[in-house]
Design a protein around this nucleic acid. Structure first.
Lengths: 196, 196
DNA sequence: ACTAACGGATAACGCCGTTAACCAGTCCTA
DNA sequence: TAGGACTGGTTAACGGCGTTATCCGTTAGT
């Protein structure tokens, strides 16, 4: 009986791969074990619970997501950075719907030393850096950041859930939205009016 | 032993109330039964499964959601309609987070005669009617509609998930976003350029 | 009032997450 | 190199939950 030589990392990676195939909510210890050629209880030598596994997947996902956004924005500015970052995000969610959902579900930290915190911060930092190219008033930065997250997150999750039924190009809609946001951000910058 | 006089509707309503209190994912047949003063198996006389119950809750939720949006937009146009509709949506999601999540999860129809379809269509119809006030080019309507759903859905779900950690007013961010979208939509209308 | 259908209850099954007990392989040390 | 502790698997068993089968009291129709 040779050993499988599992580790917390390998279990997490197997779970991450699986979750993208079957969906976040269908993740089960049995399926992960089966994929690793191991009986279910063996997993508990490396992971304390299913919630723990889901959290580890979430942390890993958020870190990779942060990398993708950072790499996409790297070396670009303004409209180009927005377009590249947004496309990178959409690509990530499409290729890793389960992991994105896991990261989403775990975005509430469990404690002050939760490793998800720096990962989330890196994502936010990338978006903030990107927005800096629009030279917004500092009082509006937070609002713009939240709007951006909302629009991109909303679009990605709606697309992943099959929410766009009408057969108009979803790609076109996405670029249209990015363009819309870009113009709006430029407009906010140029006219420093606070409005209404 | 008096009867509880349950019905598919009363079970659905009990589930809907419960789901807002404990969250979509924690819904269980046992809790619904307990709330109705009944043993779990009794529910199966009115509902075929937990998935069926969740779906019924989703349909009910989507219908009420559609009503809320329609009522809010009613009698308004343009910027006013947008602001009113968006606020109505946010209010609904805040007051009924579980039901909104249920509606969200069931937005994929199970068949051609799924009652969720007309409910979803009513929601979309309201947003489309609202957008008509901006007199967009017909080729851009779908894109604008999708963007709006994305932004509003994304904001609402992120807020419901506690995704906005920084202590800046979430209310302000929301009105800022609505204002941003409103201006952008006006800009799209006035300059009929298709861009890039 | 009698009877059939309805709508509850109790009992039991199966799946899944989890824990306990056990045992084989691995590695450090004498 | 032999022994022993630790590591990382296995099998067995428990508990909770969704679900089904069976049974029985209530209700409604003739």
């Amino acid at each position: 009986m040779p050993r499988a030589r599992l580790t917390a990392l390998s279990v997490t990676e197997a779970g991450a791969a699986l979750i993208d195939e079957i969906g976040f909510e269908k993740l089960s210890m049995g399926l992960v074990a089966e994929r690793l050629g191991v009986k279910t209880p063996a997993l508990y030598k490396h992971v304390t619970s299913q919630a723990d596994l889901a959290h580890r997947i979430a942390v890993r996902a958020m870190a990779e997501f942060a990398d993708a956004i950072r790499d996409a924005i790297q070396g670009r500015a303004g409209s180009d950075a927005l377009a590249a970052g947004a496309q990178a995000m959409r690509t990530y969610v499409r290729e890793h719907p389960g992991q994105y959902a896991a990261g989403d579900a775990a975005s509430r930290p469990t404690g002050p030393d939760d490793p998800i915190i720096p990962a989330v911060e890196r994502v936010v930092a990338s978006w903030a850096a990107m927005l800096r190219g629009y030279h917004l008033d500092s009082s509006q930065e937070i609002h713009a950041l939240r709007m951006l997250r909302s629009a991109l997150h909303g679009f990605s999750t709606l697309e992943a859930a099959g929410g766009f039924q009408i057969d108009a190009s979803v790609d076109d809609s996405f670029t249209w939205m990015i363009d819309f946001l870009d113009r709006g951000l430029h407009a906010v910058t140029s006219s420093s009016t606070v409005a209404r």
